[in-house]
Design a protein around this nucleic acid. Structure first.
Lengths: 257, 257
DNA sequence: ACAAAAGTGTTTTTAATACACCCATGA
DNA sequence: TCATGGGTGTATTAAAAACACTTTTGT
């Protein structure tokens, strides 16, 4: 399935039976060059004075009438990145009546859907992907760009709020489950993993204690390859073994209050 | 606002502008006589053979067109229990296309809303209230009953799923934040609190260690009153001080993986 | 030889766990 | 006086935190 206009364009495909009250939005996190990034879709709209403007929006779509929400989210993700089996999780619902209230947003929806839409409740998902594999054709077609989470520009609708809520959920999840791997390529160094933790959690971590903690877990598999071409002692690569993790993951958590 | 029929009846109030695609459902937890309970609404419907049947549903409602989701949830809760300022949290949304598919459910919606409704996405909230204060007039009017979580009967729609997901979220939350107090009356004994933890988490806890852990926290305020009329050493009552908790709550959590 | 990041151990502190008896009350 | 549940302390173990130097590579 190809989108010509934007991720919303599939609405206009004949035979697709759209539910214009409910949408899904994906906060797609990626990590590269020591920065946490979000995949955003460039959007063009004409402002009240008739000027052509650019801003960004989250990848999202209205759901089809017979479509499961989770499936709509993975469909959106796949249409955009070409990727399946990506870590994807529902985290909140956004339904303020005024979340679609700016003139340019209503105008843009009209141009892109043909309908006069004022109230949409959206199911928000976050997903984690490795930046290296994400520059798919359809992403380019959709004006998708990785943007540093520190430098998010003006966004459509309430998408800034959705991103910050999504980040908060990601932080919580990162503390309770080893999901950092989802954001890194197949093989990675421990330092890369640590930097990822530091960036997402917004703190520095003691590097000896971090290694101790991480290497204690059985699911970190050291590879034979080392880094090469670096002007310092080369680091070993590791990979994350999901099977081992599933086998050993501890059932009981302690208290935290 | 008074509901004559059920929590859905407010749909029929003229002038209320209903959005029949989106609803809220509340999993209202309570705790009494050493059991975790859920507040359910008795529902009568006619089965395919024309027989009058009884089952239960979660308190919930369609949202109004201009209504915020969170507000719709607290409204539903207030209409049912008369209570405001209750611990209330969105925890998931349910949007499988077939969640409204049983004949009796579709029929029941038709009778109660006048519409032929097949697809509703619902935002699920859980709330914690002290059972003692919940037997309000409107709850009785709405056929609300406390039902042991162990003995949930047949429920409408996918409401059993919603309850079990809600319970899982409650368990997670209970481990990470002191919310047990919300389920107890203003003053309570430490043993009551421990039993609550044991029931919700489904395990037994060492009573000396539990006391140590709980009493270490500043927000447990011992009152002067003791139990009376009990055939054993009377326990001191405590109360939870929210202000102290907010002041001292630890910013950083550790890792858990 | 120098810069730059990788890798490594020990000590201290804190939190979690395991465990058994005396106390105050009503019946 | 007995049955019932309330309340208490200590020793052990496990995890978290603090902390500094040596190693390997490219330039």
């Amino acid at each position: 399935m190809i989108d010509f206009f934007s991720t919303l364009a599939s609405m206009n495909v004949p035979g697709r039976n759209i539910n214009p009250h409910i949408s899904v939005d994906c906060v797609i996190f990626g990590f590269s060059t020591k920065m946490l990034k979000v995949l955003l879709i460039g959007r063009e709209y004409t402002n009240p004075e008739g000027k052509l403007q650019k801003d960004y929006k989250l990848p999202g779509d209205f759901i089809a009438n017979n479509e499961d929400l989770d499936l709509a989210a993975s469909r959106t993700l796949e249409e955009l990145t070409g990727l399946k089996d990506i870590y994807l999780q529902q985290f909140a619902f956004f339904g303020k009546p005024d979340r679609i209230s700016r003139k340019e947003d209503i105008e843009w929806l009209k141009n892109n859907t043909g309908h006069d839409i004022h109230r949409v409740v959206t199911a928000a998902y976050y997903s984690l992907i490795s930046v290296t594999v994400s520059s798919s054709e359809s992403a380019i077609k959709n004006n998708a760009t990785w943007i540093d989470i520190q430098h998010i520009p003006h966004l459509a609708f309430d998408h800034s709020t959705i991103i910050s809520k999504g980040l908060a959920h990601l932080q919580g999840k990162l503390r309770s489950e080893p999901i950092g791997f989802e954001l890194l390529p197949e093989r990675f160094t421990i330092r890369e993993l640590q930097t990822l933790y530091e960036v997402i959690l917004g703190c520095t971590l003691d590097n000896r204690n971090f290694r101790k903690k991480i290497l204690k877990s059985k699911y970190m598999v050291q590879l034979e390859e080392k880094q090469s071409g670096v002007a310092h002692k080369p680091a070993y690569y590791y990979r994350f073994d999901k099977n081992i993790y599933e086998k050993y993951k501890s059932a009981s958590l302690g208290f935290n209050f």
